[in-house]
């Protein structure tokens, strides 16, 4: 199978959909002739021009509110934030308007908005270019929150987002955007539904639940631990909202042990929610206390040594898995 980067995979999905759906337009800083800071819209301006590839002033609240009004009146806006950190200037428009619009209108308005941006810690990007916030958005009713871990899934999930009538946060870890992975030919019109986790590696001793960059690191750890005789099942959540708990609980029933690995903050986060539901619905399947491994609860530092210290490392993940198995 051919190999594409994340960026190329989602750009392919965007290109094919923009060709057939004239209501789609993209807004953001530098997504026009420049093609996006990360290349998300490269080549599309030449095809569709400035109205559909709309460069914006640095006015996040303004253009997110604009996207809300556009979605209410029949367009399908995609807001490209570059770095997700910039979304915070527009959070009132997202929480109070975009997330609630379908509800407030008793289902008579749809809200087909995609809010995309890069997340994650790395490259000494420091604390205004490293945030993720997916558990914050997943807390709010009305939003879909997507965090793919490989180019195949990114394309399939982005295709679903491009057809969704719900607002979608599409969040890609910037440290893996350039990595290639197998993606079917353009003629293959596969999609991946929201709320369907992927069993990324089959195992029998312990279930590791993760997403994004940490999912890839967990798979590497699982490979190493296989050499130590530990069989790890790895589940890629792929979407934080909706959260696919049936897949997690099915795996737990088999392994009896569970660890959630998440780069973002532990308090009130993905691990907190997954483990709470495990306790509610899978308590009798537990052979050891459920565990989580998170990034540090801190703003993100700049210096490489400090930065590495706030993210779960390969070694930390491997050790956390051993600990759960030994518990």
């Amino acid at each position: 199978m051919r190999e594409l980067t994340f960026t190329a995979a989602t750009r392919e999905a965007l290109t094919e959909r923009m060709a057939v759906d004239p209501s789609i337009f993209v807004m953001g800083e530098g997504i026009g002739p420049r093609g996006g800071n990360f290349g998300t819209t490269l080549g599309l301006y030449e095809k569709h021009g400035p109205l559909r590839l709309c460069d914006t002033p640095i006015a996040e609240r303004g253009f997110v509110g604009l996207a809300c009004g556009a979605a209410m009146t029949g367009a399908r806006p995609i807001v490209d934030f570059m770095f997700l950190d910039f979304i915070l200037d527009s959070v009132g428009e997202i929480f109070n308007q975009i997330a609630k619009m379908q509800y407030m209108s008793s289902g008579r308005l749809k809200m087909p908005v995609i809010l995309r941006g890069c997340i994650g810690i790395g490259s000494s990007a420091a604390t205004h270019h490293s945030s993720s916030y997916y558990s914050v958005f997943a807390h709010v009713p009305g939003l879909r929150v997507i965090v793919p871990s490989n180019p195949h899934d990114a394309k399939g999930l982005f295709r679903t987002a491009l057809r969704s009538d719900d607002p979608v946060l599409f969040l890609e870890h910037k440290n893996i955007l350039h990595l290639k992975g197998p993606v079917p030919d353009e003629s293959d019109e596969y999609t991946i539904p929201f709320g369907l986790a992927n069993v990324a590696r089959v195992g029998r001793d312990v279930t590791v639940v993760s997403l994004g960059l940490m999912l890839r690191r967990a798979l590497e750890a699982a490979e190493k631990l296989a050499g130590e005789g530990i069989s790890v099942e790895v589940i890629d959540l792929r979407t934080v909202a909706p959260l696919d708990m049936p897949t997690v609980l099915t795996s737990l029933k088999k392994t009896g042990r569970i660890l959630v690995v998440d780069e973002t903050f532990a308090p009130f986060g993905v691990g907190a929610e997954v483990i709470a539901q495990v306790n509610e619905r899978g308590f009798d399947d537990l052979d050891a206390p459920p565990a989580r491994l998170n990034g540090a609860h801190t703003p993100t530092p700049y210096s490489p040594t400090l930065e590495a210290a706030v993210v779960p490392s390969f070694d930390a993940i491997a050790q956390a898995i051993r600990d759960v198995v030994a518990a």
């Binding site: 209501s23 337009f25 303004g62 009004g69 009146t73 428009e93 308007q97």
Partner: peptide, 17 residues
């Protein structure tokens, strides 16, 4: 405030389409 932005967005849709 948001109504100002949303009306701007409606204008965008009408121009786009």
């Amino acid at each position: 405030g948001p109504c100002i932005l949303q009306a701007t967005g409606a204008g965008y849709t009408f121009k786009l389409l």
